[in-house]
Design a protein around this nucleic acid. Sequence first.
DNA 1: AATATGAACGCAAACGCTTGCGCAACAAGG
DNA 2: CCTTGTTGCGCAAGCGTTTGCGTTCATATT
Lengths: 340, 340
Amino acid sequence: MTVSITDVARAAGVSASTVSRALRGRPGVSEEVRAQITAVAAQLGYTASRSASSLASGRTFTIGVVVPYVGRWFFGTVLDAAEQVFSAAGYDVLLYNLGSPEARKRFFTKLPVRKRVDAVLSLLIPDEEESAALRSLGVPLATTVGGARPGFTVVGIDDRAGTESAVRHLVNLGHRRIGMISGASGPLHWTTPIERRNAYLDVLADAGIEHDPALEADGDYTVEGGERAMTELLAVSRPPTAVYAQSDEMAMGALRALRRHRLRVPDHVSVVGFDDHELADVVGLTTVAQPVADQGAEAARLLLRQLDEPGAEPPTEQVQMPIRLVLRETTAPPRPRGPQ
Amino acid sequence: MTVSITDVARAAGVSASTVSRALRGRPGVSEEVRAQITAVAAQLGYTASRSASSLASGRTFTIGVVVPYVGRWFFGTVLDAAEQVFSAAGYDVLLYNLGSPEARKRFFTKLPVRKRVDAVLSLLIPDEEESAALRSLGVPLATTVGGARPGFTVVGIDDRAGTESAVRHLVNLGHRRIGMISGASGPLHWTTPIERRNAYLDVLADAGIEHDPALEADGDYTVEGGERAMTELLAVSRPPTAVYAQSDEMAMGALRALRRHRLRVPDHVSVVGFDDHELADVVGLTTVAQPVADQGAEAARLLLRQLDEPGAEPPTEQVQMPIRLVLRETTAPPRPRGPQ
DNA sequence: AATATGAACGCAAACGCTTGCGCAACAAGG
DNA sequence: CCTTGTTGCGCAAGCGTTTGCGTTCATATT
């Protein structure tokens, strides 16, 4: 029914091995024969069975990409870019969406990628155990989130610098009560929220502003979480006049909360985010832009490079992409002290 | 180096076939032996090679999902939900991101999914040729976009009804000059823009409003496109007082354009979108909500069902999910005629 | 003219699993 | 005690490739 390599071989009057070599551009086949085989294969609509070829060769020409949540803009965008690079290079991508704890557990215990992929790009931060599981696959590993991990190539941004530019911007505008909406520094070994928090604290200290713990709230890196967090911040006795949200999605949640409280941005409260989300511009959000797609593409490229030239390649590589503060309409100097 | 089925067999003192049967829950193995084998396999950290097993069995336990653009909210969300269903059922998903024409062409000519997947979920609308290519795979097919296609299970929404509720809402508010930002009705055999346009025209006709072709603009289903389109609409001699955008992303682009023109929404112009994008709420966009994730999950489920009970299953099935208009803050009655 | 050299190609053995079939062993039925 | 079934398991033949090695034959080397 479905045409196999021997069918092509027969039709072309050669052996299967020659067909294999011809189609993959391997030496040992004369140009005429190769052309003939190519023609026959095309005419028969032949495509090599990936299962068979990877079984025989050990290479799968497949990359595993694991993400915490495909629907989220950041991950979707990284994935998008990475996929393009991979598929252009002839690799397929196997997607693992590990949003729920069950899915995550299932993935790391069964490790379905074993013997199925040539490399894996992880967009979630594995804990020690998970990290070890991935390393046990014996394939190149990369990530675009969080800090360095042994065995991983990581491409990221300078979280400190980004945060500093954002918070400093608020300070320079004259704000003194600057809140922060952060991400859970939960059990995940995710350095980003920590880095950003430290940078936030440092800038405050630098500016001689005393840090008020009541001005920090957890936004869970989601829109809803951001909304909740902002609501909390609004409830403290002396609410902030400006807020730094560690992600644009949380910042947007904050905007929503502010709108619900009939507070005007930036008149009553300034908001600055982080990411330069696709829609940040639509809502006029001042934010720290990071090249999200580029990070995905770059990580993919680094992975491919390791596949091409195995051996000497240093297993761990660190790449930092540029960030920049983009000023829009959600930040302004604090209002002169007036009625709440 | 990596443990194979024969290693397990040897360690358990049985044959490879018994191991295979035991691990996959096939009959013909006593419970004691099965337990023993399971234990040994776990202890050795054995995972069956997918390549080998699919080569031998013909089943791949993999689903191909092809999307036009993973980064876009709608597709990301559908994919997210579908992936969860698939992976919970033990299937892996192979992702094909066909945004660029080259990628698309490459995919449909090389058809890398051939012999690699048990089914495919297409989130893009294939043209006749592409559709035929997919059918030639001989596996169940499904989609969540556009209308009926032979050989496809389609789960979608009632585009007409959705559009009608949106446009009628504007009419009821008293608008007479109602613009539309649509999608390219280009070469893609995508019925959605057409359905929505027809419904728009019908509602206008129903309301006795004469249709003005100048009030239609192409927004390409992107934010930028929406912005361009809105800008065009603003440039006509008598601009619309309300706009129906066929997608929330275009609607948001429109909002941006309006803001740039210093026009207030809904005071100067009302805007209604379609989708109920994750961030529609943040910008207060009135829109037609459709259950995006549900559609992905449902399509996945239908596909799995066809895999479970092959044969009798009708190859084509149509499912319609509910829609509803959600009123927010971008729509209001037109301002009484005043200075532009 | 005899030999060495390579290029072009075929042979056959993997790769790691699944599965139809056969064969014990043991239970039940006559 | 001899059939007739069952049940539990091993044998071995694939599944469709890739690849090391061998063979053939034309060309270059002495």
